[in-house]
């Protein structure tokens, strides 16, 4: 699957390891949460980084004790309308302070890219055939965000506003069609 990071296609060094597959002695591997927990001793002692794939029903809390040993967490969107992974990402980044790579997999649509970045995803597995121009246009079309305390490059009002808040008198608030100075 093509991988997008920072608005361009990048090489993917990670291999997703099925639960039955043998653990290779080196190379970057992504394993399931169950396998990580049951084989953590083997996994952390080998050469190469370890990533964990979380189902979108998993509680990120389950992986909390291991976060310092993990370099990648992948969260999945079974359908792009199933938004659970947005909240998982938020919990990982905010409640648990996870600072490694956060990867979006599954049904990942260009029109979601802005939201995904805001909750803390930094790499995106996209369907083959995805145009990078369409991706960048769709993800960059809105540059502002009303929500404070999220990630990404969208600017909140506090960051955009250079002039002080408008001083409205009661009278002027009621005048029709008047443009309020920003």
């Amino acid at each position: 699957m093509p991988l997008i990071k920072d608005g361009q296609f990048v090489a993917d060094s990670w291999t997703v390891l099925e639960d039955e597959a043998e653990i290779p002695p080196n190379g970057d591997v992504i394993v399931s949460l169950e396998r990580y927990i049951s084989e953590v001793d083997v996994l952390v002692r080998r050469v190469g980084r370890v990533g964990v794939a979380l189902e979108n029903t998993a509680d990120p809390e389950e992986i909390a004790p291991h976060l310092s040993d993990i370099d990648l967490i992948s969260l999945t969107f079974p359908a792009f309308t199933d938004g659970r992974a947005y909240s998982q990402a938020r919990q990982l980044r905010h409640h648990l302070g996870y600072g490694g790579e956060l990867r979006a997999t599954g049904s990942v649509l260009a029109d979601q890219a802005g939201f995904l970045t805001q909750v803390g995803f930094d790499t995106f597995e996209v369907p083959s055939g995805q145009s990078i121009d369409v991706w960048n246009t769709a993800s960059g079309s809105v540059t502002l965000a009303y929500q404070r305390g999220y990630e990404g490059s969208r600017k909140t009002r506090d960051k955009l506003q250079t002039s002080p808040a408008p001083q409205l008198t009661p009278d002027c608030a009621a005048v029709a069609g008047q443009t309020v100075p920003a």
């Binding site: 309308t81 938004g83 947005y86 938020r90 802005g114 939201f115 909750v119 009303y146 929500q147």
Partner: peptide
Amino acid sequence: RQWSSLHPEFSFL
């Protein structure tokens, strides 16, 4: 209204 508009986390409930 502002907070809920294009909310990054709560647009696919």
